[in-house]
Design a protein around this nucleic acid. Structure first.
Length: 531
RNA sequence: GUCCCUAUAGCUCAAUGGAUAGAGCGCAGCCCUCCGAAGGCUGAAAUCGAGGUUCGAGUCCUCGUAGGGACGCCA
């Protein structure tokens, strides 16, 4: 509906290009359904009084969707939407059902890479946070017409894999233990599950053992948790080893040649190493591609990975990373520019701190005492876990209160939303839904009006999320929708109202059920029919 | 030392530069002869500090203060 207002404004008024103005709900409902600051904006531009501009605009804006226009100081126009237009939008919900709020296909491919945890152990809470964000964001983007690929990148080679192999050797007593090795119980469990191992081979090549362990971890510790516990599915599990390092012809060489073709000095040798001049693209220093030991760095491989993504037709990539990677952002964005990817975004998730009895419990992959995401889901439930992680914007730190999360308290916001859905379902158990005509003018009480407007906002919410990736908006939306419904339900009678009113209220309840269910589906939170 | 994130009610969080800063928890109360009280309603309570930009700043800029994080030819 907001887009419709903007359209109407542009159709009736000549607005210079590049001028940005707002269309939003006014702070108080009695002012109108939508408000714009256009008079203020244009007055500033044309050096006129906002009120004069507003009066001129009020004469010009004519559209059947707009019933009345009023001016309010210092320079806003308030619109009241006509009843017929409200009914039209309302009907779109009932007819569109679960497709309400979707946009038509755009023919634009986006890759969302997320989680991509090191395969050296089970998934942490931070992995969980990024996972839920990527999952919901992918679904919202798909609803807005983008062709989305969800990618999990397995870092199954490199130094941390060698360390993993050495860690097993240390636990088996074959090499001396070291502080930098991994020490979690899961390593011992892996070792115990193996009858015989070719120690001579692995002592000679610890990375070989690391690859073996990492593959097992992905297969047994990571992938089942993602798919079965977190209920997240990926379109592509990309292996660093298989898909990037062993690509023929080598992607790394292709990247290097591409960089050289842009400018020969982008690649240079210094101190026996090979460098990429990322500084030229906004990084604070240049970065090494090949070490003086002639080994490609993780960064070089990642550059090759970006190139591979681009070559498969993606001109837009969203990469969701943990907070510890923030120093990595500018160099990978430099790569995106070099390979000519049109849009590249890196979302850095801020930390999750685990609080227990008022004190922080350290999370570390190397101590083996941190709480894993599957453990958390087992304790608090998937719906709760998703809600807690998605509730806050990705740039805020989360203090995850374990005690509170474990408590299945009645005041829980998840139950609040689910209860609204269960209440709706119970209405239609008593009175099976039938499509019928209805009269919006009979839904004129404050609680009904608010509920209707909340429903109509839904497509705008999805549109906003697709633009700024703030998935927490959808959590808020679902909560507010549930609240508006609860108020409506407490204030107005549905089943024992007069026949014509009942008919209209049942349509309103139906529309609410549709949108609430869809919101929960997008969030990956279950919508129980009874509880 | 450099860089990133954060600072709003007792606590956890909202608020595309817009009108009287909103919720939940907690606290003090009220509402089931009535479609599900896992609900509704009422009340007390807040923008870290100092400048600046703007018709207008919680929001943008500068400088402080405080908390968290990152700074390797590791990944």
């Amino acid at each position: 509906m907001r887009e419709r207002i903007i359209e109407i404004l542009r159709k009736n008024v000549e607005i210079p290009g590049g001028v940005s103005f707002s269309v939003e709900h006014p702070p108080r409902a009695e002012l109108g359904d939508y408000a714009t600051n256009l008079p203020l904006v244009l007055a500033g531009l044309e050096k006129k009084q906002p009120q004069d501009v507003a009066e001129m605009l009020m004469r010009k804006i004519i559209d059947p969707a707009i019933a009345t226009i009023t001016f309010s100081p210092p320079g806003f126009l308030n619109f009241q939407i006509s009843e017929s237009e409200v009914k039209k939008e309302f009907t779109r919900i009932l007819d569109g059902k679960e497709r309400y709020g979707n946009q038509s296909r755009l023919n634009e491919k986006i890759q969302v890479e997320f989680i991509s945890a090191n395969p050296t152990g089970p998934l942490t809470l931070a992995n969980g946070r990024g996972g839920f964000l990527g999952d919901v964001l992918s679904r919202v983007l798909a609803s807005q017409g983008f062709e989305v690929e969800r990618e999990y990148y397995i870092n199954d080679s490199g130094n941390q894999i060698t360390t993993l192999g050495l860690s097993i050797l240390a636990i088996a007593g074959k090499v001396l233990d070291d502080e930098k090795y991994y020490h979690g119980d899961y390593l011992k469990e892996w070792l115990d599950s193996k009858q015989t191992l070719n120690w001579d081979l692995y002592l000679k090549d610890p990375q070989l053992l690391g690859i073996y362990v990492a593959n097992d971890f992905v297969k047994n510790l990571i992938r089942p948790v993602i798919e079965k516990k977190m209920k997240i599915n990926f379109d592509r599990w990309t292996s660093e080893q298989r898909d990037i390092r062993q690509s023929r012809p080598p992607l790394t060489i292709e990247f290097e040649q591409l960089a050289k073709s842009i400018s020969p000095d982008l690649i240079f040798d210094r101190d026996g190493a090979r460098w990429l001049k990322t500084k030229k693209y906004g990084d604070d220093k240049d970065r090494v591609l090949v070490t003086s030991d002639r080994l490609p760095t993780y960064f070089f491989i990642d550059a090759a990975h970006y190139l591979e993504t681009k070559k498969r037709g993606f001109n837009h990539k969203i990469n969701i990373l943990g907070a510890d990677h923030h120093g990595y952002v500018s160099r990978i964005q430099a790569v995106a520019k070099i390979i000519g990817m049109a849009k590249s975004e890196v979302i850095v998730m801020q930390l999750v701190r685990l609080m227990e009895n008022g004190v922080e419990r350290r999370m570390s992959k190397r101590t083996g005492v941190y709480v894993t995401i599957d453990e958390l889901i087992d304790e608090v439930g998937l719906d709760q876990a998703r809600y807690f992680f998605l509730e806050k914007n990705h740039e805020t730190h989360i203090d995850f209160d374990l005690d509170l999360a474990k408590k299945r308290s009645k005041e829980n916001p998840v139950f609040y939303i689910q209860y609204a859905h269960a209440r709706l379902c119970s209405i239609f158990i008593k009175e099976p839904y039938e499509k019928s005509d209805f009269d919006v003018s009979l839904l004129a009480s404050e609680s009904e009006d608010r509920l209707i407007w909340k429903l109509i906002d839904f497509p705008d919410v999805l549109r906003d999320i697709a633009a700024d990736y703030r998935v927490s908006r959808l959590i808020r939306y679902a909560y507010e929708l549930a609240h508006n419904f609860h108020v409506f339900y407490e204030t107005e009678r549905i089943l024992d109202a007069a026949a014509d009113i009942k008919k209209s209220r049942l349509q309103l309840a139906r529309a609410t059920q549709i949108v609430l269910k869809k919101s929960l589906d997008l969030l990956g939170i279950s919508a129980p029919e009874e509880m």
